[in-house]
Design a protein around this nucleic acid. Structure first.
Length: 643
DNA sequence: TAAGTCACG
DNA sequence: ACGTACGTGACTTAT
């Protein structure tokens, strides 16, 4: 019997704040689900494992099963610290069991002993042969690692299945269950509460916990049975799922676990220096404004600049207020003193609050290192996303910001190696478009921006001026982003007509690129998605929208996605091969960070020569494109020196 | 919780 | 006529 839920109740729940996790829900799902009949798992058979006899019976089933869905319940979301509270299993749909191990509340029934039970389950958990399925098993693998168990035999993951099929949609289990099964699952908030009143899962009543946890395993199994045939039927998706995403997950686990060493003292010193300068700048700003105000408040800055001082409004924010962003302040700084002070203040405040103050607080007490979290199913293009802390946006473009990188260090006897793909997206554009001129430039290992400038300005590479090269570089980047003449004009600070002329000249010289852009847009319109070289798909629901702005946005995304996405595929393949190589060669070198086109490693001094000679070749040869790939490698005592 | 801003590729 | 380069995460203020 299926339970029909009140739709408004359910809507309210969707609007509840989702704890920041992989795959937040988007409002879009609301409408989609409105047409779906909403069911629940109220009829399913969920068992609680409390006795040795019940455990032995389940272990026998686990050992006999071809595939087991596994899920853990824990004390928290910090993967390096969270401890196991219980785990659930499912082998057949509508049947699942919850094994509570560490619930603690007054009157809690006797549970099986945590350590003894883990010891009993260890052979199965660590067996490569016994296949496991789950939703985001990278998380569960961390939890088991915290208890000294190496979870092996990960065969499938519904998070990655959903991501490969529909990267643009949400992948949290509640959304997946609703979208694919028409089932309204019990949310974590329903079980543990929300906000300040949220309780730890070990406080949750055993019956409620069983209902929730067993359902997770059951639903994940059902999702897998629905999703995996949709992947298996399509060679490209199958390749991306089996040969890229699943193995990449294992590498990400290792990298998150490795963490990176920080020189916290150096950051503290920098924080102090920044703090002193910020106080000076604040005083100068108040003086220039002839009144005190909060320099961190765009609203107050806006009032000072545009109401009180009557400076000209250069542009508006999306909500219609006068913008005070960097571009505006730069322009105003040419004529007035205060904007320049604000710019300096903003730059330093950003460095202090986001980096020098925050990073030392993120050092894990147990390991002494910083462990980021890599989200594998967030970026629609196939890229990773790093958070808590984000190690993919550590400053590098400004000299002051670069100093932050001096705090990313190697321990004594080791060094930091950074290996980055040179011009990766432009090389992919050359490959995808097959444009003869662009391919030629890369085949000859030319400076591609210089070569482009020579073509556009009809001169020889040797005679290209610095300014011409800068223009060409902006144009090349613009092409990757699906730019318009307006965008290019703004970026270069020139007339729109002039920008249009440059674009025309570019396409005249690189006709293959123009044809590729046209056919990509057309392909997106026809089939609703575009693909990377390796068959990853990006869907573009708004490509045929009647809203011109939405449609054009989708067109730009369609142009960009194959290039950004192929680059993401390539570096994931590189990570997989590098990690495999490190393991087979028994090296102590560790992968510690990925920044989209760059891998960062911690390398013992005695392995440095080998890494320097082998790593670039390994990374270059992960795929055979029509352009050569080039990897630039640097090393040093810290991340800054390694560039 | 949203808006504005800014760090990265 | 309208807004305008792709993809992310985090901090701060203000509602």
């Amino acid at each position: 019997m299926f339970e029909r839920l009140n739709f408004k109740t359910w809507l309210r729940e969707l609007n509840m704040p989702v704890k920041k996790m992989e795959a937040a829900k988007v409002p879009e799902q609301v409408e989609e689900a409105a047409e779906t009949e909403i069911n629940s798992t109220a009829h399913a058979q969920y068992q609680k494992i409390l006795t040795d006899a019940q455990l032995e019976e389940w272990i026998a089933r686990l050992l006999a099963a071809d595939l087991v869905c596994l899920d853990t319940e824990t004390t928290g979301l910090d993967v390096m610290d969270a401890r196991l509270v219980g785990m659930s299993f499912a082998i057949t749909p509508y049947e699942a069991a919850y094994l509570p191990l560490a619930h603690r509340y007054p009157g809690v029934p006797d549970q099986l002993d945590l350590d003894a039970t883990l010891a009993r389950l260890r052979p199965w958990l660590e067996s490569e042969q016994h296949k496991k399925l789950g939703q985001n098993l990278k998380y569960d693998k961390h939890i088991f690692a915290n208890h000294g168990i190496a979870l092996r035999g990960i065969a499938d993951d519904t998070l990655l299945e959903s991501y490969v099929l529909e990267s643009h949609k949400s992948h949290d289990m509640d959304s997946l269950a609703l979208r694919h099964l028409g089932v309204k699952t019990i949310s974590y908030e329903e079980v543990a509460g929300r906000g300040a009143k949220q309780i730890c899962f070990d406080q949750v009543d055993l019956d409620i916990a069983t209902r929730y946890a067993a359902e997770d395993a059951d639903i994940t199994l059902q999702l897998h049975q629905t999703l995996v045939p949709q992947i298996t039927g399509q060679a490209g998706l199958q390749h991306v799922y089996r040969d890229i995403e699943l193995p990449a997950m294992q590498v990400l686990f290792v990298m998150e676990r490795n963490g990176v060493l920080l020189d916290s003292n150096l950051l503290h010193v920098q924080s102090h220096e920044l703090g002193v300068k910020l106080i000076e700048l604040e005083a100068r700003a108040h003086e220039a404004a002839e009144q005190p105000f909060n320099l961190n408040s765009p609203k107050q800055i806006q009032e000072i600049l545009f109401d009180k001082l009557k400076l000209p409004v250069k542009k508006k924010t999306p909500s219609g207020a006068p913008s005070t962003d960097e571009e505006v302040l730069q322009e105003l700084a040419l004529d007035y003193p205060l904007p320049k002070i604000l710019l300096e203040y903003r730059g330093m405040a950003k460095l202090k609050s986001t980096y020098t103050d925050k990073l030392p607080k993120m050092v894990n007490r147990a390991t002494g290192r910083v462990h980021t979290s890599y989200a594998q199913a967030v970026a629609v293009t196939g890229r990773l996303a790093s958070s808590d802390p984000n190690l993919q946006n550590i400053p590098i473009r400004s000299v002051e910001g670069r100093r932050i990188r001096e705090a990313f260090i190697a321990p004594p006897g080791s060094c930091i190696v950074a290996a980055d793909y040179s011009q990766i997206e432009l090389r992919i554009m050359a490959h995808l478009s097959g444009d003869a001129g662009l391919l030629q430039a890369f085949a000859n290992n030319e400076d591609v921006h210089r070569a482009t400038a020579a073509e556009i300005f009809m001169t020889t590479p040797a005679e290209v001026t610095t300014e011409q090269r800068r223009y060409a570089k902006v144009i090349n980047f613009g092409l990757i982003y699906g730019m318009s003449a307006f965008g290019l004009a703004r970026q270069l600070g020139i007339e729109r007509g002039a920008a249009q002329a440059y674009i025309a000249r570019y396409f005249a010289r690189y006709p293959g690129v123009r044809d590729y852009m046209d056919s990509t847009r057309e392909q997106a319109r026809q089939q609703g998605y575009v693909e990377t070289v390796f068959g990853r798909r990006l869907w573009l629901p708004e490509i045929n929208s009647s809203n011109a702005m939405k449609r054009q946005g989708a067109e730009r995304a369609a142009i960009n996605a194959p290039m950004q996405g192929t680059a993401a595929d390539l570096i994931k393949l590189a990570m997989i091969q590098v990690q495999r190589w490190l393991e087979t060669e028994n090296l102590k070198t560790r992968l510690i960070m990925q920044v989209h086109d760059e891998l960062v490693l911690e390398v013992p001094d005695d392995e440095l020569p080998l890494i320097k000679t082998s790593l670039p070749g390994l990374m270059c040869h992960v795929a055979n494109l029509n352009v050569p790939l080039l990897v630039e490698l640097g090393s040093g005592k810290n991340w800054d020196e390694a560039h």
